[in-house]
Design a protein around this nucleic acid. Sequence first.
DNA 1: GGGATTATTGAAAATCATTTTCGCTATTCA
DNA 2: TGAATAGCGAAAATGATTTTCAATAATCCC
Lengths: 157, 157
Amino acid sequence: MEHDPALPDLSQEADQLKTVLNKEGFRFTSQRQKILDLFQAAALGHHLSAEEIHQQLLDQGEKISFSTIYRALHVMVRLSLLQELELAEGRKYYELNTPFMDQHHHLVCVHCGAVKEFEDATMAQVGSSESAARGFSLLNCQFTVYGICPSCQPLLG
Amino acid sequence: MEHDPALPDLSQEADQLKTVLNKEGFRFTSQRQKILDLFQAAALGHHLSAEEIHQQLLDQGEKISFSTIYRALHVMVRLSLLQELELAEGRKYYELNTPFMDQHHHLVCVHCGAVKEFEDATMAQVGSSESAARGFSLLNCQFTVYGICPSCQPLLG
DNA sequence: GGGATTATTGAAAATCATTTTCGCTATTCA
DNA sequence: TGAATAGCGAAAATGATTTTCAATAATCCC
């Protein structure tokens, strides 16, 4: 009854989430679906913090607690549905987990916090060769470049 | 009186710290020197958290407050003496800042937390070209590879 | 489908790392 | 040296995240 006919068929995606959750002994809940929906509605590679998720759900009239959000994020990271990002700023961000070779990386403005994504296959290559060289089994790579964005440069020295 | 003759002349380094601090209006204090000493005594590229700094100073009989440690770390990051790392684990790590082209990166075991450093000039190249392409002025790059280290692999599935 | 089992939820309290406040001390500079 | 003030330590405050606990709801089994 919550299915909006204007959107692509989500019941299939919902089933997918349920299947993935149940396979590992987790339960499907509407809260988890709503959180995942936010990521799927956003541009691929868009990252969200717990705070932003909470606010966006509030905005669309959904009441949800922070504990539920944090628990859902952890579960989805464990199931490889989401990826946790350490961008800086003292909080964590999450985004849809993409196939390894499609991973993108981040360019962060240390002044205003703006984040740009970019892709570069070199990272995956270096990541796999480095981890292989030390016997690590590779999970993922994050390349973060810190700088000052064009808008902030005039504001500083 | 704390000068160990087996080590290179530290009085010169102390003067250096004083000079760098005073140049920007900060004051030289013994606490700041002791914190910087910890980094200089460690292997280049070894990273420390505020907690570890506090513990190491306690171990060598120095009493220092966390507020002082955090303030000193911020000042030294601002002065480019140290670099702040976002490795994961919900806390920040710091290490001696090295010249840009010598930057090293990290391979982290998500199971036991072990961290290995590695160098790869490709990162700096990609970092500069990406930031240049978007008009960012580059400050630094962090490439972090997450995986499972050889010791932990047998312990998991 | 119905009921037992138990994962999940929300609210509030608890943690943990980090930051701030404030009165006192110590560094810098004239 | 002495005035001005940055920095110190201790304790309180903050902000993000985690945990606790009683109530709820998803899954499983019959």
